[in-house]
Design a binder for these strands. Structure first.
Lengths: 141, 141
DNA sequence: TCCGTATGTCACCTATACGTTACCTATGTG
DNA sequence: CACATAGGTAACGTATAGGTGACATACGGA
């Protein structure tokens, strides 16, 4: 899942997806024709897109035909737009709250905050204060 | 727009958005409490999110209150899911085509493809062969 | 078989993303 | 005022992303 976000972060790779959308089944060299960079550079991007399952391919003879796959984007949609669209209402409520009360937003701080800038990796290994420690949860996006 | 993709590419920044979704209006230090890294590291991520307009903030006294903004995600939705959802039908048609005909996919190559690996930046500045050259179009995502 | 095309792999270089320490500014509070 | 807290800036080290040339492999046709 993280791979999808990373893959989409590059303009080159997003353009590759657009190209594959316009010309499904084109080859690696076909894609290369759209870019200034060498074939090897394009292939690296294709590899990243492939790892993210945003691009699928099928070898036919000596050439590889490329297709894009909308499923991961669909997953991003499910994870982000549905989950974050509810936030529209939430934020409006929030703003309404502040306008009416003129005070601080609801629950502005509930965690036992740690000290400040100075390093605190050592203490974070002790059991204390760890029930709110979401850090290093292995990226559950 | 590119900034939004780049901002979303980091697991840390996506988690910050989740945190701000769960606790709108919390401060910089509140966010820092969720991470192992130092406050400066978190602030850099916040800056990137701010540049992408995924996070807004408002200074109150000496503390800054943070909110996330779903609008850019909404834009990504418009750009990618609606545009790419049509591809579902397109790909199915594509696959159906190949299954029935057993041949190569429709329009597998229409561009005049250039040579191969070797550099060709020089020629790309000549007018010839440039009507298919989408390169350096200044990233119109 | 011999050669050209199409792709795949390897080692390497360089710009930049990410995180750090050190230091600075502003705002509360005794 | 003295001092702690909250945030902001600058300079810097390091891992990695993105790109390269050299070389290898595989297929197809004369």
């Amino acid at each position: 899942m993280d791979a999808v976000f990373v893959a989409l972060a590059s303009p080159v790779r997003r353009r590759i997806l657009d190209i594959l959308k316009a010309r499904p089944g084109c080859t690696v060299n076909d894609v290369c024709a759209y870019f200034e960079m060498t074939r090897i550079g394009v292939m690296k991007h294709l590899q990243i897109l492939n790892d993210a399952m945003l691009v699928t391919s099928r070898k036919e003879g000596r050439s590889r035909h490329l297709f894009h796959n909308a499923v991961p984007i669909r997953m991003i949609y499910d994870r982000w737009t549905t989950e974050y669209s509810e936030v529209w209402a939430q934020r409006l409520t929030e703003i309404k709250y502040k306008v009416e009360k003129g005070g601080t937003p609801p629950r502005p701080g509930k965690l036992s905050r740690r000290r400040r800038t100075k390093r605190r990796r050592i203490e974070s290994h002790s059991g204390a204060d760890s029930n709110v420690d979401m850090t290093r949860k292995k990226e559950q996006v």
